[in-house]
Amino acid sequence: MKISPRVTHSIAWGVCWAAGLLSLAFLLVIIGYVFVNGIGSISWEFLTTNPQGGLKGEGGILSPLVGTLYLVALTLLIAVPLGVGAAIYLSEYAVNNWFTKMVRFGVESLAGIPSIVFGLFGFALFVIALGFNFSILSGSLTLACLCLPVIIRTCEEAIKAVPGTYREASYGLGATKWQTIMHVILPAAIPGIITAIILTVGRIVEETACLYVTMGGSSNMPTSVWSNSRTLSLHLYYLAMETTAVDKALATGVILILIIVVINFVTRWLSNRYVAMTRGGNR
């Protein structure tokens, strides 16, 4: 017996609904599980004490929190200027030749390389060959390499979205290309560049593998960029694998998810505002 197309249609529609709801359920289950089991362990003390180490995983998350802040600041300091520079090349200077092809190949390939391979590279170059040891600096340099493609792509889109008439007006006033870029194009692309920066912060917060082999993982309070340190994600890993403090690991998970939710919210808000701004940009 042949099933009629209408019946097939209804079944398929049901399957699509099931798939959509299942995808949503994954997120709800993960977030629900972490929150329900982790939120009880969060207290002021948890946020303001250092991890004590040991098998029981006593203590809070202060030093990993500070380590994360150090890492975010230093990585952005290294990666954002490089990324914006490369984005300026791709959007303003690139012509269709071998050099541009090479640049594009570099960005695309770098984007797909697994975090742990960056870690391998960072370990060999920064930790060993350059003698930076396990430190926030080694971690930042490695992460900067990893984050570059995201920054370049997002900034390139932001710069390309600046209307051509801005450039023409600037050239028409006798400005050089560099003056046009610095005084006209980049200021107009700022919201997009900020979006890129926030996305990168998210990437830094979620990253673990390449930091596991370059940052050391000490739970002491970092004092400089040369300190052996850990981030929140790394702290969660150590708690889960090397201690019995499952509740603390889940509480750290809650903090991480909250950070990511805030980051997503801000990016969304910014890009909506940006769209509204460019649409109403007849001022």
Partner: peptide, 12 residues
């Protein structure tokens, strides 16, 4: 800027 452009490829 050309140098900045090449940075990803150099890292690769």
């Amino acid at each position: 800027i050309y140098l900045f452009g090449a940075i990803s490829f150099i890292i690769l």
